[in-house]
Design a protein around this nucleic acid. Sequence first.
DNA 1: TCGATTGAGTAAATCGTTTTAGTATAAAAT
DNA 2: ATTTTATACTAAAACGATTTACTCAATCGA
Lengths: 356, 356
Amino acid sequence: MPRKAKAIPGENGQSGGRGAVSLKQLAAHLGLSTTTLSLVLNKRPTADSIPEETKKRIFSAAKELNYRPNYLARSLRAQRTHTLGVLVPELSDGYSSMVLNGVEAALSNDGFFYLTASHLHRDDLLEKLPRVLVERQVEGIIAVDTPIRFEPDLPVVNVSGHDEIAGVTNVVLNHQHAAELGIGHLYDLGHRKIAVLKGQDFSSDTEVRFETILKAADQREIPIASKLRQQLEGDLPSPEVGYAATKKLIVTGEKFTALFAFNDVSAIGAIRALEEAGMRVPEDVSVMGFDDIYGAAFHNPALTTMRQPLFEMGRLAAKTVLQELSGERNENPERILSVEPTLIIRQSTARVSKAV
Amino acid sequence: MPRKAKAIPGENGQSGGRGAVSLKQLAAHLGLSTTTLSLVLNKRPTADSIPEETKKRIFSAAKELNYRPNYLARSLRAQRTHTLGVLVPELSDGYSSMVLNGVEAALSNDGFFYLTASHLHRDDLLEKLPRVLVERQVEGIIAVDTPIRFEPDLPVVNVSGHDEIAGVTNVVLNHQHAAELGIGHLYDLGHRKIAVLKGQDFSSDTEVRFETILKAADQREIPIASKLRQQLEGDLPSPEVGYAATKKLIVTGEKFTALFAFNDVSAIGAIRALEEAGMRVPEDVSVMGFDDIYGAAFHNPALTTMRQPLFEMGRLAAKTVLQELSGERNENPERILSVEPTLIIRQSTARVSKAV
DNA sequence: TCGATTGAGTAAATCGTTTTAGTATAAAAT
DNA sequence: ATTTTATACTAAAACGATTTACTCAATCGA
């Protein structure tokens, strides 16, 4: 369905859109074969024997008629699409989008693009989307916080993935270190009764994060009482679920001076719940987030948090896929790529007060 | 570069990846022609005369050998890619990602996907990315807060765009209404000295938003003093720029009881600056945001803001492109699609206090 | 002077579909 | 007994590039 019916196709000086000029037309225009044009335009070594004069004619005609190679045709022939698929739970929670920035940064150098698909943690989509992406001939898949349910036939890197699936590389945070840093920070501030918000089951980091935190607390001999463990509920991450979980925590009556949230989003909800219950943050209760999402620094109080290098994780994921594709699949394909957390101390944690 | 060298291509029971079985192979396997298979598999009316029995053989063989049509080949032939290009400034500022959610919601029904490209408001990218997307044979482009520098040959919808370019549809907020609601709200709370943060020049909403706010204030006879107009500076939106602009505003010494920020992100920075200067929000100064980004409700204080229906705008943009593509390009192609703002009253605005 | 080499190209196959324009056989209509 | 119609398919072109395997003419070497 051509949009602007051009009277004279091929006389289109505008853009490479629908009425674009094909290599064939360009060749006819020049009285040469498509072979020659292709060789010259792609600067193949085979084109060495073509005289400069002819080359110039070709290049200037290409420019003049605004020739743009058709990526579909090229991809079909080359069996390469220079396109990845990206699976995310959702885009606007501040987590995935940071990862995507990193992905894009790594891809753009190599002329790759990506198709985004959100699965919203819905089973049907988790099953269908990878299939559809593969049908679309993506060369690899980057998943973000997404359970992998298939044995892939193409490079797959899962950011924050923990399932060990053959052929899948996981980019993960060094959770043990994160837990030690986080618990250590709270411990150093004098906190001995720490509550923990555990993530929803669908988040792939949930188990590791929870377990490593419990362990780090045990090692400091300040075990987390079971009444101070609360799991987030609800279908998607949001401040509301942190708010609700913290409310529950409060009504148990069990005292705590610090709260280690599953992530920044739930920490923000937790702060609201605490303040509504008359507990000031950080004077009465310290709150520790996780992720360091966009805006955490400007929350009120500014969030102390465990930064995940999300941009870097996205970039690493993309670089890994690209590397696998380029055949440099190093003999020792590391299936787990670990990145380091950084403790970012801001205003939501403070020395424990005697008053409580 | 096949990833897992399959000994017997075509005997691949796994996935539709690299070693995928082609229609030709499937046809050979069945002793039929590709024509017949294509007709049957796509349920073309022409296939009516094929006996059920044969059809069943075809379908079950397709399932068994895990046949997946190659989207490239199909697209090349049909001259339809079912793919759009999406141009955004950046993904993680909480604005674009909400729009993208809406885009995706509208596209997924129709089997469309999209390629995302971030231009970071950089001139070179603003020039190059649309070209590359067109080369990739996208059928249309959705731009978000992006200046359009080209006369497109394909459907283009710009969300929050204000340039009138032939062939470009703009999805815009009813800014006049927004300004009246916002100023009206502050006025009703008794505010007479209102400061305004104007957006950066690269944001397409900057001028309209500023002008409509000034006008709405004039109409209420509380004109915005020029010392109370401050423009955001910096290459990207961020709380920092709101913070810096508000600092500047404060040092002028000019008193104000309310501040109408350019957007939520800058409002959040403004709040930080005000509180650092010893002014409480909303007790001493009311702050009004714009957009209602993810998390605005859970900011401290919860942000009063002018909600833009970002998801809806994304959906509308996508639906419009799809409609243009389906040829239902209604005789009267509205080039401006307006959506309504909603005033969301939370905690960052309050009745003006006599004390100040 | 004859075969080999170089220069300047080109024809045709290929990638994996879809579609147009058939064909061959059997059954029905005249 | 022939034409028509329906059934059950198929050959080949097309989409727009890339690439392999050539061709033809001129020049070179011995």
